[in-house]
């Protein structure tokens, strides 16, 4: 045995040797940890999904607030999936994953918000069809 104060073989018997983590993959953890994560993810997801379907049919929520409530619930559930199913964490081994995700979210936001914003303005500034027909006469 060398002058190491621990046994390296204890840690190399499992999968590859790893430094960083890729999403959906956590090193040196037992199957039980994965099962726990899956259970927690399923539990939170079921609660949020049921809440979504229920909020969509609820009549005592102020009508215009329902879409916003649904979007908030959806974002929460996406967060649950990222944490419990994809194993994205805030740890230093996850920096690259989180940065890539942040860039993806930025692009998605630009595409969605930009399209909706621009097209809504376009629709607002468009002359109503009947007036357009009147002018053409």
């Amino acid at each position: 045995m060398s002058n190491l104060e621990f046994d390296p073989h204890e840690y190399t018997g499992t999968l590859d040797k790893r430094e960083d983590h890729a999403p959906g993959d956590v090193a040196e953890e037992s199957a039980g940890h994965w099962v726990l994560n899956a259970n927690l993810g399923l539990g939170f997801s079921v609660v949020l999904t049921v809440a979504s379907f229920w909020a969509a049919g609820a009549h005592w929520i102020w009508g215009p607030a329902v879409p916003m409530a649904l979007i908030v619930l959806a974002i929460a559930q996406m967060g649950v999936h990222l944490v419990y199913f994809l194993h994205i964490t805030t740890g230093p081994d996850n920096t690259n994953n989180v940065l890539a995700l942040a860039y993806g979210v930025l692009v998605v936001f630009l595409i969605l918000a930009g399209s909706v914003w621009i097209m809504a303005h376009l629709a607002d500034n468009m002359m109503p069809m009947d007036k357009l027909m009147d002018m053409a006469r």
């Binding site: 999968l15 430094e19 960083d20 890729a22 920096t95 994953n97 860039y103 595409i111």
Partner: peptide
């Protein structure tokens, strides 16, 4: 050391494969 700070050499293939696929998935989501 390690954990993306560049002191422990290139990442293992397992990390590179998973990370590359993660990038693909993000582009799919875009």
């Amino acid at each position: 050391l390690g954990a993306g700070h560049g002191a422990t050499g290139p990442a293992s293939k397992r990390v590179i494969v998973g990370y590359g696929f993660w990038i693909f998935l993000l582009s799919d989501i875009v």
